[in-house]
Design a protein around this nucleic acid. Structure first.
Lengths: 229, 229
DNA sequence: GATGAAACGTGATAAAGTCACGGTAAAAAC
DNA sequence: GTTTTTACCGTGACTTTATCACGTTTCATC
């Protein structure tokens, strides 16, 4: 696996810069559940997931979580580079949702490239704009949508990746949505009463995706938006 | 007023680029309440407020608003440039809170500079990071803070600019906070009962800033953060 | 099979948003 | 200068979501 394929600006780097990256980029693996960034964990540089899944989220003092966005193979993880960005002082947590392999670019290296190369700097802008866009979408959801539609949309999005059976606890769902377990439990039971899902311990099965999609309404991002970097 | 003073990257531009800006940048004035961007209003390029105040906010289908951030003299308004940024597809509204004078850089000009100059591209990144940071702070507030502390913090921040008497309607306050008038009304009456404020039609007076600050708690950004660009 | 932890269930209460009014003061119209 | 209109404010009833405080079930492990 060559580095260049993961970096859109590769072709616009000098051979010296390309050589520098080839020497400095390393591959790292993170076990499911590992915390990659946030809290006490220091700045580690930039990450490019090759396989697996990373999750960016914020964590309140009381332990409430909400997922900001998730990163899959090929997406670039900017916030592991928050040290690069002064002006970013909020604390985003990033953890591996599955066993994840990622390419690692040390922060100083990337920072140096940004200074030298307009292509790299512009790529960084676009990347940040993409993440910003996702967070704005989230803010709109939190403020203006009801939880049942957000929950239905979440279930449908998950099932796009893993099929009708989702292996996830109700507490994890609540953490994704920025809600709490009790509320998710009650709502899932309402869904079950309507024969939209079947609940098990630690998993659930979607029975009626069409009705869920109707409840989800505008909270459901279409598949096209998902793949955007 | 020279353009260069408003643009940190001015010194790192070529004389040709500087000349281009001098020719293309114009001064515009917007009356209080004018909508500068969002909804049907098209992309206008980049704005640099010289005096006055701009407000960026989102608007739900039902008409609920929340302020994302505000821009004062010297801040650069990125989102009027969302056409520059593909990847930004959410709809941020920007309106003049007061009569506002701003320098205007046409979108194509700025876009061209970003392509050519790493300094401009990096400045754009930093700017976006700063806005992103503000929105993340807001998201945290919305999710994790109670409305009384957010309201108290808002009143204190406003009074920093305009003194103890705030000329603002309860509905406007609600729009800043992403809440609704009724809730703000009830909470303000609670504050009045506690002798923290005195309410009038279309205005209110802060009576006990210290107690308000205590209610505001962690929702109150300190003055240092305010001036950051 | 006992034990402990993780996951789930549920009722009571509180905070905030929604709905539907109605009142009052200020501004505009005549 | 009154009348009319509009913007702003007040309030009760109800819904949604969060919080608190438990209890129950399932599962792995000794």
């Amino acid at each position: 696996m060559t580095i260049g394929e993961y970096l859109p600006f590769w072709g616009r780097l000098s051979t010296v810069q390309q050589q520098l990256l080839r020497e400095q980029v390393t591959q790292r693996t993170f076990p499911r559940g590992a915390l990659l960034h946030g809290g006490a964990v220091d700045c580690i540089g930039l990450l490019l997931p090759v396989s697996g899944q990373l999750r960016a989220y914020i964590l309140s003092e009381e332990g409430k979580e909400i997922t900001l966005y998730r990163l899959f193979a090929g997406d670039m993880c900017l916030f592991s580079a928050s040290c690069i960005m002064r002006n970013i002082q909020f604390d985003v947590m990033i953890s591996a949702q599955e066993d994840t392999v990622a390419l690692h670019i040390p922060a100083e290296i990337y920072h140096g490239l940004m200074e030298e190369s307009a292509a790299v700097a512009n790529y960084t802008s676009e990347l940040m704009a993409a993440r910003f866009s996702e967070v704005m979408w989230l803010l709109d959801q939190v403020l203006n949508k009801k939880l049942d539609s957000r929950l239905a949309a979440f279930l449908l999005e998950e099932s796009r990746r893993s099929g009708a059976t989702l292996t996830i606890t109700q507490e994890q769902i609540a953490h994704h949505l920025g809600s709490v377990r009790e509320v998710v439990t009650r709502m899932l039971h309402y869904f079950q009463a309507e024969k939209l899902v079947r609940l098990n311990r630690g998993s659930l099965v979607l029975l009626d995706a069409a009705s869920l999609a109707q409840i989800a309404g505008a909270s459901l991002r279409d598949a096209a938006c998902q793949t955007q970097t």
